[in-house]
Amino acid sequence: MTGVLRAELLKLRTTRTAVWLFAGLLALVCFVVLLHGFNLSPSRADHSGQMRIFGWGELGALFAALLGAVSITGELRNGLVRPTFLATPRRQQVLAAKLLSAMLAGLAFGAAAEVLAIGLGSATLSARGIPIRLEGEDYAQLILGGVVAAALWAPVGLGVGASLRNQVPTLIGLCAWLLFVENLLIGELPAVARYLPGAAAAAIGGATITGEVPTDPPLLPPILGALLLAGYAAVAMIIGIAATERRDVP
């Protein structure tokens, strides 16, 4: 098992895919935080308004999901999955190693994105003379939440990728779900939508990726959000592993 894990970690380090995703994440966080930071009306620069800006580090969860998905759909696309499964025919071992390596990368994505959002957001608001309303525990929740959410969305992406197998629909589906579908639902059906995986990630960090933080009913408590998201990750992985074990390698 250690050999399989080392192989997966080496795969991450020896192409530019992870680096490009990481760079894309940081660029997007910069863009959004600067845009919202400079546009935030001083009358709305209260605690929750500032949490919304600083919470954009939650984008780390989306990019962790994309990385988790690409780790399997990329191999299915270029065919590397064949030598991979020839070397390790117990396919669940390969997916377990991908799970660990994607979660590790997710940790880094979530931490970097959240630290960047907080640093850039603080600098932007300070430059405009807006006093920062966040306390130490807010920062702790944002960073810890961003890290946990990203680490748990990585296996969601991996599980979805292993189930759908086709790279383009997988990536589009993950983006559309997190950025669009859940955003609509949290506005229209908050009582249901707060149990969805994107809202669970938002609950952990205390800020949604997009849109308003719902108040009626509010997001779940962070611990419940983390447990729920872990449940989604487990279900996605179980389906992905079962599909990979059962189907022929293309």
């Binding site: 192989a7 080496l10 020896t14 270029n78 590397l80 070397a87």
Partner: peptide, 22 residues
């Protein structure tokens, strides 16, 4: 079928498989 990640170099491709294959 020529099963590689085109962005990885040949040696790293083999190093990955050597780890996986023990």
């Amino acid at each position: 079928s020529g099963d590689f990640d085109p962005g990885r170099n040949g040696r790293d491709h083999l190093r990955v498989l050597a780890f996986a294959a023990d």
